[in-house]
Design a protein around this nucleic acid. Structure first.
Lengths: 406, 406
DNA sequence: GTAATATGTCTCTTCTTTGGACAATATCCC
DNA sequence: GGGATATTGTCCAAAGAAGAGACATATTAC
């Protein structure tokens, strides 16, 4: 039961029905391919005649293509199978991180076309844009003959306003209220979409093409330098009134806890970020000003995990502790928005087998019902590049999205 | 950008466009009444001809009525004004609380028709249903001549599953997984809608008819024995996968804090519930098992507030403390879902002038941006009966809701 | 009184789903 | 091999709905 917004409603025009059904057909082709017109008619509960019109429209636009007539199975005329056409269009995904910036090109379904390239991030906006557009232009030039670029999706570790294309605040980059979209867009002459990396990761999971069982309500928790969270409600990214929705990283576990980079104390992030885990291992107060030892400065979570695997009890304890705090925070997410599934990303997932029990025990401690405590948790490894896949989805997904209506 | 659910999509049928525009017209009549057909055509950006058809449909169904031709202002034929017809239909709202159960009848816009009646709550389900249906039948009999009852909305202090009509867990009533809807519905032969009271309060604000500026994203925080929260996203109540979404009352402020009724420790509820505030005043550990003094047992928040107003420094300090914790928790809500507006209900609102500064200061401490810290907060006094208004909205609102599409 | 103007209804056109017919296959079974 | 049966995709007429504009009605300006 949704209330119609008396200021921002959308009237049903003459084309609206067609638009809706067209997108449904496209979605079903996407999730069920290979699929015939007759199959679609059965799935949609309409006549084959309408489906034919819809399909011909999609064919004319080049969004889908007809494959060879497939094996029907029973008797009767064999069906012509339909597929999403992922050859002529592609998108470029960009992941800007504090130290390096990563690029990838994918088709509309998120399948990578070329390997991931990267370069060192220069935090001066002008230089970064210049470096970036050079790389992008090179990719575009390479593909000019076969396909056209639909746009560039850029994810940033910080708060963003996708509408204006501004990065509101990215602490690790030292950016505050900078317009990233417009200068980049003019430099490369392509549409640019900006988004926070946590949300983009969530987006990547929503649109993950393999997932037949669509989960319209999910949360993605990305644990690395900070904790980024993306929430999806009703198949739509939750952005909130000020573009800060989903910042569970700064919901407290203990208001008297350690100081967080955001200025407040006891944020979840201050307990489970990579730095927090490492500090715990070194028995160091993360707020301390005194310089780190050489070992500490270069020591990574990967190192910690391998030590834990090799029998370092202190390392294992530090991981378990992080696992526990992770679970406590996940319980907050469940109690707050109760998503159908939780995804965890970040370096810590490499140690998931070690910490899963701690996570689940902590979750059960605070979840309000048994069923909620058993909310499915899936890890997304660093190698799956959820941020880049999310960046790609920023550009590719709108072609498949539901039209705004009512 | 919303993903279409490949399992639960809704095709656009021949009637769909009409349905959508009909509901938009109805919404606009609701929010802009008195309004003419020509006004609607301008608001909707369509021809007057289409509006006429939609309006005639709504007239035939008795949802709206034509008033006297109004003053146009300029020259030309005078418009015939349209209004929501709130005479022929009404709904019954029920608020079941631990000690008393309240009833009210309202029209479709939520305007009370008869005064609020109440009776002592008997926690034995059968007896309560019997008592309740007696009262309901009496109201129905009183109105039989003039109007028909559309249904009964029931709100409960606990977790509910509106679909099945079951109360999953209501600690203060001692109910666990009881079917409230079906037996009540058969007893009174009317449709029954069950909902958690926090969510219902949020619903009441969404559908508050005065509010021209529709806020599609809001949170309602109801502070009393416990802390109930209702979240609205995109004009729709957030229920979550297990019907526990919005339970911010059990998101921690400090995991090492006082024990909460839910079994966990340091929940927001354990800091700001009425009991927590009173315990703070009496310098008593709320988890203590030792019996309360006679004074403490009968002392209420209202008493505390009046003492604070009369110069009791300890009372004022206890309230300020609650205000601070309230603000810290509100910051969590803002960081998590970033609603456009926060509503606060409960007895504590009577002391809002005393604690507002504490609330806002605490909120500013933890909010991630200045803009977010300035999220509008509105109080809803106990006299406005938000729970009952929400219960009414459960039944009345579907008539105005947007149709499910795509 | 006449011109100007706004409202509400009506008609015709265009777009879209609905229902059914039909040709084009392909298999089953005798 | 041939007829019966079944399935796919297309086509056509019907009906629902928005778009565009004409027209009668009602009211004020001058």
């Amino acid at each position: 039961m949704r209330k119609i917004d008396p200021k921002r409603f959308k009237i049903a025009k003459r084309h609206t029905s067609r638009e809706i059904n067209r997108q449904i057909a496209l979605t079903l082709i996407r999730t069920h391919q290979p699929v015939s017109r007759a199959d679609l008619a059965r799935l949609m509960g309409t006549r084959r005649g309408v489906v034919s019109i819809l399909v011909n429209e999609l064919l004319a636009e080049g969004l889908i293509f007809e494959g060879a007539t497939g094996e029907g199975g029973g008797r009767g005329r064999k069906p012509t199978f339909l597929y999403i056409d992922s050859r002529e269009r592609y998108v470029i995904a960009v992941d800007i991180r504090a130290t390096r910036t990563y690029l990838m090109a994918t088709d509309l379904l998120g399948k990578p076309l070329v390997g991931i390239t990267s370069f060192s991030t220069n935090r001066t906006l002008g230089i970064l844009i210049s470096n970036l557009s050079q790389k992008i232009r090179s990719i575009v030039a390479d593909h000019k003959a076969v396909a056209t670029c639909q746009g560039v999706g850029v994810v940033v570790p910080g708060m963003t306003d996708p509408k204006s294309g501004r990065v509101l605040h990215a602490p690790t980059l030292g950016w505050r209220n900078v317009n990233l979209k417009d200068p980049l867009s003019t430099a490369i002459d392509l549409p640019v979409h900006i988004e926070n990396s946590g949300r983009a990761c969530a987006l990547a999971q929503v649109w993950a093409s393999r997932d037949h069982a669509h989960i319209g309500d999910l949360a993605f928790v990305s644990v690395s330098d900070g904790v980024g969270v993306g929430i999806v409600v009703n198949g739509e990214i939750l952005r909130g009134q000020h573009n800060i929705a989903g910042e569970f990283g700064h919901v407290p576990l203990s208001i008297d806890g350690p100081r967080c980079s955001c200025g407040a104390t006891g944020c979840w992030e201050a307990y489970v970020s990579n730095l927090a885990t490492l500090s715990r291992y070194f028995g160091r107060n993360p707020n301390e000003q005194k310089p780190m030892s050489a070992e500490m400065a270069t020591f990574t979570i990967e190192d910690l995990v391998s030590r834990a695997r090799n029998g370092d009890g202190k390392a294992l304890a530090a991981l378990h502790s992080t696992g526990r705090y992770l679970g406590l925070g996940l319980a907050s997410i469940i109690n707050a928005v109760d998503p159908g599934r939780l995804y965890i990303g970040g370096e810590i997932t490499a140690a998931w087998d070690l910490i899963e029990s701690s996570v689940k025990a902590a979750l059960a401690e605070r979840a309000l019902t048994d069923l909620a405590a058993r909310t499915e948790i899936r890890t997304v490894s660093v190698e799956e590049h959820p941020r880049l896949r999310g960046a790609a989805a920023l550009v590719a997904a709108p072609a498949f999205a539901a039209p705004m209506v009512a």
